[in-house]
């Protein structure tokens, strides 16, 4: 896709900061063997509260969810950072963020133990990041800045 310099800079920056966020969150969890989403899940609100609570209290399920979450975050972040398979990463990231949102929706009347860093109604930072990933998906830049450039190049060369 062709972009002006400013647009490309804006889109690549957005991709990198989200990648940065995902990758670091994922790695911190992977590197800490004691990390678990248990408390976060137990603190869930909204209409799926019970399902998240069930996950939290089932050790085997929790183990799978924790592993998928940590490795998912890391791989999505890594992909966005290096610029490879970013379309699938962006979609996966949106799905992951949607689950976070379902667990802690910003709806009036729901209070969480963990404090909220602002005032939100329906839209919170999770939703903002989710839609930012949608932009990454709609305007892919990894063929411009990223490893996909070589992949693309190789394809063109073959053709």
């Amino acid at each position: 896709m062709e972009f002006s310099k400013t647009k490309l800079f804006a889109l690549v920056s957005l991709r990198l900061v989200i990648g940065w966020h995902f990758f670091y969150e994922g790695m911190v969890k992977i590197l800490n063997p004691a990390w678990t989403s248990k408390a976060y899940l137990l603190d869930s609100g909204g209409f799926l509260k019970e399902i998240f609570g069930w996950i939290a209290l089932n050790d085997a399920v929790l183990w799978v969810v924790d592993a998928m979450n940590a490795w998912g975050l890391m791989l999505i972040g890594f992909s966005l950072l290096i610029g490879l398979f970013t379309n699938i990463s962006a979609i996966s990231g949106m799905i992951l963020l949607f689950f976070y949102y379902l667990s802690h929706p910003a709806l009036p009347g729901i209070e969480y133990l963990f404090p909220v860093d602002g005032s939100y109604f329906i839209v919170n930072k999770t939703i903002v990041e989710l839609f930012a990933l949608f932009v990454i998906f709609a305007f892919p830049t990894s063929q411009n800045i990223g490893l996909e450039r070589f992949y693309d190049k190789a394809k063109n060369t073959r053709a």
Binding site: V12, L16, G19, W20, L81, I82, G83, N144, G146, R149
Partner: peptide, 11 residues
Amino acid sequence: DLLAGLASLPV
């Protein structure tokens, strides 16, 4: 190409 492809790696 090389520079653009690897530009993000320092991050």
